[in-house]
Simulated scan of single mutants.
Amino acid sequence: MAAPFPNLYTHRKVAESAAKACDVCYKPSSSVLITPDKKDFFYICPAHLKDRYFCTPKIDEDAAKAKREKELAEEKEKLVKEYQEKLRKKKEKEKEKEKSKDKDKDKDEEKDESKEDKESKEEAESGAKNGGDETPKQEDEPRVFELKSTFYQQRLQRKRQAEAAKRDRERASQPNYFPSVPTEPPRK
């Protein structure tokens, strides 16, 4: 007989107010393992997900490769921007030096302007640094797990027992499930 659901479970989080007892240790947990077809789910502590005797993580190689490529592209773009910013600053400094050599009379005015320029540059740099670090890090934890055979068999057994109990309740609710009272008088 084929299994009613595959041995692949996705880790999901629920609200703390919806936390229920872990299936293993019975402590309140907001982590849930659920099958892709949503036929089976159970609450589990995050610590049990790291236990190699309970389950093994399934890593999606394509997703991991795409993530690495994305990180490399972001790093490359960041380095290019930094390099362009350094070149721009270097050119501005060269222009300032040329201006100071050419005009000794307007020296006082340039100092005031250069101070304002430096202050605006510092503000722009601090804004760029703060803006670049605000991107949240994605979880590096695996999200898909395969239960060890013992635990998977327990899940299958619980599912079968629940289905059998449901069938028994349905049969008991039918009028012809129990024998009827005899209508004929007893024989002597």
Rank of each mutant, 00 (worst) to 15 (best):
R52Q: 13
R52V: 13
F54E: 01
F54T: 03
F54M: 03
P57T: 02
K58Y: 11
K58E: 12
K58H: 08
I59D: 01
D60L: 04
A63D: 10
A63Q: 11
A66H: 04
A66T: 04
K67E: 13
K67D: 06
K67P: 00
R68T: 10
E69Q: 14
A73I: 00
A73T: 00
E74T: 05
K78L: 05
K81M: 06
E82W: 07
E82G: 05
E82Y: 10
Y83D: 06
Y83C: 06
E85L: 05
K86L: 13
K86Q: 11
K89C: 13
E92P: 00
E92N: 05
E94R: 10
E96C: 02
E96T: 05
K97Q: 06
K97L: 09
E98T: 04
E98R: 11
K99G: 09
S100N: 10
S100R: 13
S100T: 04
K101V: 10
D102A: 15
D102R: 13
D102W: 02
K103I: 00
K103A: 14
K105S: 07
D106A: 12
K107L: 07
D108F: 05
K111N: 06
K115F: 14
K115T: 08
E119M: 08
S120G: 03
E123C: 09
A124S: 13
A124M: 12
K129G: 02
K129N: 12
G131E: 13
D133S: 11
E134Y: 02
P136F: 03
P136H: 01
P136M: 00
K137C: 05
Q138T: 14
D140A: 11
D140L: 09
P142Q: 03
V144A: 07
F145C: 05
E146R: 14
E146Y: 00
E146I: 01
L147D: 02
K148M: 04
S149V: 10
S149F: 07
T150P: 01
Q153E: 13
Q153D: 12
Q154D: 09
R158W: 04
R158Q: 15
R160G: 06
Q161T: 15
E163I: 11
A164F: 05
A164K: 15
A165I: 03
A165V: 02
